[in-house]
Each structure stands twice: as C-alpha cells, then as structure tokens.
Design a binder for these strands. Structure first.
Lengths: 195, 195
DNA sequence: TTCGATATATATCAATTCGATATATATAAT
DNA sequence: ATTATATATATCGAATTGATATATATCGAA
C-alpha cells in the first residue's frame, strides 16, 4: 500500500486536484495515521495517470497554474480493491519525541521540559482538530452521516489522543523528577544548568 | 534526527556491530517508536565513520563475514547531544490497518474481520514483548535499574498497547455491525459474500 | 500602506529510508 | 532430511521526505 493507493481511495469521494488531496493528509481525516506531501502525491498521481488508473482534465485559472482535476477510472477502482484485499503491513511509527526522552541524560533539563510541554500542547491541538473533523469536512463525504469505517477511524484517533494525552499529563512530574535524580554530578553528559 | 543519530545513541551503551544495533529496532527497546533495518543502518554507520563520529575495528570469524565493531568518538557524542538539543519533529505514523478500515466498503466482510483480528493479535504480542523488555534486555544497559528516560518510554509503549488494545476489543462488534449495516445491496463496491 | 503570513496550485530534486535480495555457515526444530 | 532461525555484512531500485522554485491574491498587522 503506497501513496498512489491512498490517492485512488480519496478519489472515490469525487474528482479532486493534487492540492485538494493533500488536504486529506494535512489537516483532514488521514492526518493522524498517514502522512503525505506534494513530493509524494504529485508523482503518485502521474504514475496512476500513466497506468490508466485515473484520468486528468486541466482547468485554466488566472495567475495560478492550471488546475489538474483527477478522476478515478474503473481500472483504478479495481486496483484499489485489489490492494485493500491484502493484509496490511505493520504500523510504522517514528517518534523523535520518545527518542529524545530515551536519551534524556544527554539533554539539558530545560530543553527536556520544553520538549515535553510542546508535545503535550500538540496533543491538545490534535484533539481539538479531530473534534471539528466531521463528515462535512470530508470533501465529497456525507455531512452528518459518516460511514462506519470513517467514523471508527476518527474515534480511534480521538481515543488515542485522549488516552495518551492523559498519560503524559499524569506522569510529567514523576518523569522529570526521575531524570533529575539520575543525573550524577560527575560523569554527567550534560551539566545541570548547561545547554 | 535520522538513523545515524539513533545509531550514535545506541553506541553510548557500548560498542556494537550493525547487526546488534538492528536488534534495538527489531525486538528491542525502540521497536514501538522507531523502525530501521539493515538498509538504513549500514549506510548510516558508514557515513558516521566517514565523518569521524565512530571508529570501527574488524574481528575475524569462521565462515561468517568479519564482525565490524563500532565505537563512539567524542565527536560522535557531541553530534548526538547537538541533535538532541533540537525540537523533535512531529510523530510520523503510517497505519495501513486504519486505511483499510477507512475504506471498509471496498473490503469483503471476511477480510475485514480477519484484518481486525490480526491487528488485535499483534497488540497482544506487543504487550507481551514489552513486558519482557527490561534493563537486562538492553545490551549495555543496567539490569534491574533502568534509567528514568528509558523506563518512561517503555511505560509509554505499554500504556499505548494496553489502552488502544482495549479500545479495539470494546468496539469490534459495533464496528463490524456498522459497516455491514452500511452496505446497500445495490451499488455496493463489494458483494456481500464476494472476494 | 506596506510587510509578512496564509491560501491557491503545480513541479522537481537531493537525501533518506524501505524492502528485497545476495552471500555464507551453524544450529535448532520439524 | 529439510526447513527455519540466527549470525553477519552489503547493495540496489523504488518510494518517501523535506526543501525549494514559481506565481498571484488576499487578509491582517504594524
């Protein structure tokens, strides 16, 4: 499953431009479980076009580059169902935040607290973002009557942010104290008040 | 923050080969928040060697290729602390599982249940894996006295698997029923009992 | 009012990462 | 006897990331 397949899936909701497709990843319903930017979306659409999975019509605009509106072909729809019939690969998670905490002795106390609080703030922001993400925000979606799969994925995201956010709040003080207690004055990678 | 930095971090626990480093990602303490395979680790070590961040000594073996044992240099340690002093990038998550659920109408009922149950089984397996992951399993780590940062990251992982696992179990029936209720007999992307 | 930020829209490119494959042998399990 | 797993390194094409380039319009702040 690659970005191309995701684009085909998004096109089942209706014709769209590459720019609009990015919206699904940026702040849209995919943002909490799949990331993709222009650098992967545009090549994916071009490849799909070459394979006959989508069609493309251009629409002139003033000033801006022509809009290229993509539409799913029957072959593209078939490719999507084929791909979805495979067992999905394991989740891939990359958290630089947890890397930083793992190597806490090499980070200054101040930076460690900053990093923790910025991460927590991200969680609060993501919860708000998801709350406002209903059917109406899904271009081509059905307003107020979200299909079960989409609703479940959204609830999954809400639960994730709320549960992990709570864990982060509950354990902040204990974590910071534990790291500081572990810093021995000598042979310490980072000096107590240093950079 | 890239795989090279992660390798430097791992080398703070002691000298190691590329093969041993991979163990940290494969089943070790990084497995739930950072993935890296040989294809990124070996090039990363070579690059680090070229930049003087690590040294390398070869050790002959019978049959197998020579062991190449890497050791952190002061410059490498400095590179690590520099990198850790930056604000970490946002978490990147890629879940093909959630993509499959999102596009549930394009998946056969049987496959959908299989996918769900396989994913749940992965969670149970990961919880067991993390339970057995103590200081002693961290090469060079201190047995029975895990540093606070490492302990926190492990607890984070445990909490994640337990909380999300519970959500998945609690909502399985409702999700499956919701998807099936949403399948209209006509204009249905996938026939009820089909492929 | 002018400056910077944001939004609209596409495209490309170097660097990084992924996933598979290749090469060998030993041992453990079926 | 055969298959799978473990030890160990290396490479390569394909996919992805993150930054940059190109234009214009608008909107808010200084």
């Amino acid at each position: 499953m690659d970005v191309k397949t995701l684009c085909l899936g998004i096109l089942t909701f209706g014709d769209a431009t590459g720019y609009e497709i990015r919206g699904y990843f940026e702040d849209g319903p995919f943002s909490h479980f799949f990331q993709a930017g222009f650098g992967s979306i545009y090549p994916a659409l071009n490849k799909a076009l070459g394979e006959g999975l989508v069609t493309c019509r251009a629409e002139s605009q003033d000033g801006r580059p022509d809009k290229k509106i993509y539409a799913l072909t029957p072959s593209g729809r078939e490719h999507l169902t084929d791909d979805l019939s495979h067992v999905p690969a394991d989740d891939k998670i990359r958290s630089e935040f947890l890397v930083t905490l793992f190597f806490a002795p090499y980070v200054s106390p101040q930076h460690l607290e900053d990093v923790y609080d910025l991460y927590l703030a991200d969680f609060e922001r993501n919860i708000e973002k998801m709350k406002n993400l209903t059917g109406g925000d899904i271009p081509g979606g059905v307003s107020g009557d979200i299909p079960a799969g989409q609703a479940f994925v959204r609830e999954f995201g809400m639960h994730f942010y709320q549960s992990i956010g709570e864990f982060l709040r509950d354990n902040r003080a204990r974590f910071i104290a534990g790291v500081e207690a572990g810093r021995s004055p000598k042979a310490d990678p980072v000096q107590g008040g240093g950079a």
